[in-house]
Design a protein around this nucleic acid. Structure first.
Lengths: 130, 130
DNA sequence: CTGTATCCAACTTGATACTG
DNA sequence: CAGTATCAAGTTGGATACAG
């Protein structure tokens, strides 16, 4: 029962699920972290330096969120000082393919988007010079 | 030089592009609208009723953003009262495939994420009942 | 080293009212 | 019908200081 074979093109339910997912990974840092972790497990400090526009606070918060959603596994090695390793779970790794698809689209179209934006802005308020 | 052939797995530049793109479409409404428009062109009021959790203000703002980024085309038919048709551009339609991939992932994994979250929350603060 | 707590500025969203 | 303006509220992100 409740087979959910996803035959329809774009049912509202699916849209809402995508929105939910984007609510998790669509923030400023999650995808960056998932991508970094996709290359292998990293310690907190390594991630912090690896991304380096991120604040310590946001790294902690984002990692907690990813851990909570089952995308990242957090392993504490209780040494002194403590080590904490972060790595992708199976679920986290399964997200890499969709993200790659989006990455490729982004890489291919960001310049087009930027051009469209510049054009739009020029047409809206740019004709004031004379 | 600066060939950018995208040979590396996940260079930082690509990450930043994805972040940029997510900054556009990763908000609360854009993807919902793009999906709706993927089924055919719609008028403002139709979109408003079609999504119905959205406020008039946010529909306007989101549509403007999508138009600005070249994903949506806005056509004004100057009748009385005026009609405004919205439809996907080629660029907007090219986004549908990546979004579908993400949709499928979302549809397949949202329940897993929800379960992970419930489990995480239970483990963090839930053991207070006894 | 790996966090947590506090304060604060900026951005996002919604409700409401108003306009052509 | 389509859109704008204003205001209030919530959320996000950063800086800083502190703790185990």
């Amino acid at each position: 029962m409740t087979v959910t074979t996803m035959q329809e093109t774009h049912p509202t339910e699916t849209c809402l699920k995508v929105s939910q997912v984007l609510g998790r990974i669509g923030d400023k840092w999650s995808l960056l972290i998932v991508t970094r972790l996709g290359e292998g497990s990293l310690r907190f400090g390594q991630l912090l330096r690896s991304i380096d526009d991120i604040s310590q606070r946001m790294l902690t918060r984002t990692l907690r969120g990813l851990e909570r959603d089952g995308l990242v596994r957090r392993t504490v090695i209780a040494t002194l000082p403590p080590r904490v390793e972060y790595e992708l779970t199976d679920l986290g790794r399964s997200l890499q393919a969709p993200v790659t698809v989006l990455s490729n689209w982004a890489a291919e179209n960001v310049s087009t988007i930027d051009a469209a934006r510049a054009s739009y802005d020029a047409g809206s308020a740019g004709s004031q010079g004379r």
